[in-house]
Computed example of a mutant assay.
Amino acid sequence: MSTRPGAAVLADRLLPRSSALTDVALVGAGAAVVGVLAQLTVPMWPVPITGQTLAVMLVGAALGMRRGAAALTTYLVMGLAGVPWFAEGRGGPAMVLSPTFGYLVGFVLAAAVAGWCAERAWDRRPLLAMVGFCAATVAPFLVGVPYLAGVLGLSDLSTVAAYGITPFILPGLIKAGMAAAALPLAWRLVQLVDDRSGR
């Protein structure tokens, strides 16, 4: 199976990319999926565990690097504009002062990473998919952890880790595993339909 750059992602396989309007619709739908799964929340302070990370991986892989990043940028911008689709129904410009905001910014990078991997067909094999989705899971921490520390005025690394890293390791691995199971299954179903239709 090909792992070349530019391999078709799932959205391209399911829908014809005949116009810019198709891309806009896919980006909007991707942002909405993240907004819906963000409401699946395990309340914690200062950062809740949510379904956002799973949604980011699925959207990034399904749409590809550019559209995935565009979907998460749309999600971020519209949330800051007041759409209440961040975790726990939050939104508005005050989110910039929240300790969670850095993770939201990091989701753009995470979607791009998942999409980059999918464009190399990693999402069609469970092991490669897991590698890619673990990399996507790490991406939000690169922005989120320093931002959290800055907003909360934390300098002790163990406290920063306890608030912003440690509680999310196991849930992150579980969500990466879910995505790594879902995407190859979706591709197998697409191939099955193709085989039955004689494509």
Rank of each mutant, 00 (worst) to 15 (best):
T3N: 14
T3Y: 15
R4Q: 13
A8I: 05
L10Q: 08
D12A: 13
R13K: 09
P16T: 11
P16M: 02
R17S: 12
A20R: 15
A20T: 14
A20H: 12
D23Q: 14
D23I: 11
V27M: 13
G28D: 11
A29V: 13
A32E: 06
V33T: 10
V33G: 01
V34G: 03
V36T: 09
A38S: 15
L40M: 14
V42L: 15
V42S: 05
M44Q: 15
W45I: 06
P46L: 12
V47M: 09
V47G: 07
P48K: 08
T50K: 09
G51E: 05
L54E: 10
A55T: 07
A55H: 09
V56S: 01
V56K: 02
M57V: 02
M57D: 02
M57W: 04
L58M: 13
G60T: 06
A61E: 02
A62P: 00
L63F: 04
G64K: 02
M65I: 00
M65R: 15
R67H: 05
G68V: 03
A69T: 02
A71D: 04
A71E: 02
L72K: 05
L72E: 11
L72P: 00
T73R: 01
T73Y: 01
Y75M: 04
L76K: 09
L76W: 13
V77K: 11
M78T: 13
M78Y: 08
G79I: 00
G79V: 00
L80F: 08
A81N: 00
V83N: 07
P84L: 05
W85T: 04
F86V: 07
R90T: 12
G92M: 03
A94W: 15
P99D: 02
T100E: 01
F101P: 00
G102H: 03
Y103I: 01
V105W: 04
G106P: 02
G106Q: 02
G106H: 06
A110H: 06
A110F: 03
A111W: 05
A111T: 04
V113G: 07
G115V: 01
E119I: 00
A121S: 06
W122Y: 12
D123Q: 01
D123F: 01
R124T: 10
R124E: 09
R124K: 11
R124S: 05
R124H: 07
R125Y: 08
V131I: 13
V131F: 08
G132M: 03
G132F: 06
A135V: 10
T137W: 10
A139T: 03
A139L: 03
P140D: 03
F141K: 06
G144A: 10
P146V: 10
Y147F: 12
Y147P: 01
L148M: 14
L148H: 12
A149L: 12
G150Q: 12
L152N: 09
L152P: 01
S155Y: 07
S155K: 09
S158P: 00
T159K: 13
V160C: 04
A161L: 12
A162I: 06
Y163L: 11
P167V: 06
F168S: 07
F168P: 09
P171C: 03
P171H: 09
L173S: 10
I174K: 04
I174P: 00
K175P: 05
A180K: 10
A181D: 05
A181E: 05
L183C: 03
L183I: 04
P184M: 06
L185W: 15
W187T: 02
R188K: 14
L189A: 12
Q191P: 00
V193I: 14
D195A: 15
R196Y: 11
G198D: 08
